[in-house]
């Protein structure tokens, strides 16, 4: 029995190595399934909770155009969450259980959403920086080994590009505006820069799951590789905007053809991961409240569907 299991696992790894996608009904190791459910649902939760900091500014967007854009972006995030939950469900997870884990504080979501959105410039910074970082994380996931996850990510990435551009446009408008507007953009960048670098996760040396996830080709780049890419990508964009990245150690390194940069405050990172971010409690509370207040709608819709079904059946019986 054990040798058979081993063979199955070896066959599985051979398919992964040949870049053959794994599909829902294919055999897969339990740990692969569990890792995926955890990662995909965390990702889905992040999209769901990610609506809250931006939802905060919908009623206060500075123009109808900005308001329409922000509404569309927040709606996209709901959509991204739904694509991802449906990918997780192909692995046998139940939607209600995934949400229950989120609401009970058992499941994680991206720490970045536990920071407050204090000014309109935060909408620009979230689109430009946070979605920029998300895109770097997500583009390689379009080639991740599990088919439904990869397909969901293709849709997400297509839509995410609009998110980043609208954010950059807000930053550009503020940077080219009055001194106060430019200061607002700089202040937002100062607050969001370090939390954004944390989005790539712990250092490679502190990330025990990375090696296995790379072997399974769930992950295609390590946390540190992506963080470096991000910094190299953002520095010229910040220069274009005339904004200063709040890192005194930031310096071009000719030898590595990339930037050297300061270390993230890892104590803060772990603290936020543990649920002690500035808005952690508020975010979870808002989620739970929305879910509970929607319960009667979900029940009523089911009851209505059931009643209509029974009526249709009764009508058919009479006709027959």
């Amino acid at each position: 029995m054990e040798t058979l299991e081993l063979t199955q696992e070896e066959q599985f790894q051979a398919r992964i190595d040949a870049d053959t996608r794994i599909e829902p009904k294919d055999w897969m190791p339990d740990a692969y399934r569990k890792t995926l459910i955890r990662q995909i649902s965390q990702h889905a939760h992040s999209e769901l909770v990610g609506m809250l900091p931006e939802g905060n500014w919908i009623t206060r967007a500075p123009s109808l155009k900005r308001k329409s854009i922000l509404l569309a972006k927040v709606q996209d995030e709901a959509g991204h969450g739904l694509y991802l939950y449906s990918a997780a469900e192909t692995l046998g997870a139940s939607r209600d259980q995934l949400l229950a884990d989120l609401h009970a504080g058992k499941a994680k979501y991206s720490s970045i959403f536990n920071y407050p959105t204090l000014s309109w410039a935060d909408m620009g910074t979230i689109g430009w920086l946070v979605d920029g970082a998300a895109i770097l994380n997500q583009v390689p996931l379009c080639r991740t080994s599990y088919g439904p996850y990869a397909r969901a990510m293709v849709r997400v990435c297509k839509e995410e590009s609009f998110h980043q551009r609208q954010g950059f446009e807000i930053m550009q408008t503020l940077s080219e505006g009055s001194a106060e507007q430019k200061a607002m953009a700089q202040e937002a960048l100062n607050r969001w820069w370090w939390p954004t670098l944390m989005m790539f996760g712990p250092k490679d040396s502190e990330s025990p799951n990375t090696e296995q996830s790379m072997k399974w080709r769930i992950k295609r780049f390590t946390n540190d590789e992506l963080r470096q890419k991000f910094v190299d990508m953002m520095v010229p964009q910040a220069e274009f905007l005339g904004l200063t990245i709040p890192d005194p150690e930031l310096k071009w390194n000719e030898a590595k053809q990339g930037y050297d940069f300061g270390d993230v405050d890892w104590a803060e990172f772990w603290d936020v991961v543990k649920g002690n971010g500035p808005c952690s409690r508020e975010r979870l509370q808002a989620r739970v409240q929305a879910h509970e207040e929607g319960a009667w709608v979900r029940e009523a819709a089911l009851a209505h569907a059931e009643k209509r079904k029974q009526r249709a059946e009764a009508a058919r019986a009479v006709a027959a």
């Binding site: 694509y83 979900r298 819709a301 209505h304 079904k309």
Partner: peptide
């Protein structure tokens, strides 16, 4: 992809949005 809905009509409406 897939989605949850109480009945077919709602599934089509939700599919439009998602």
């Amino acid at each position: 992809g897939s989605l949850h809905a109480a009945d077919a009509e709602m599934a089509i409406q939700n599919a439009r949005d998602v």
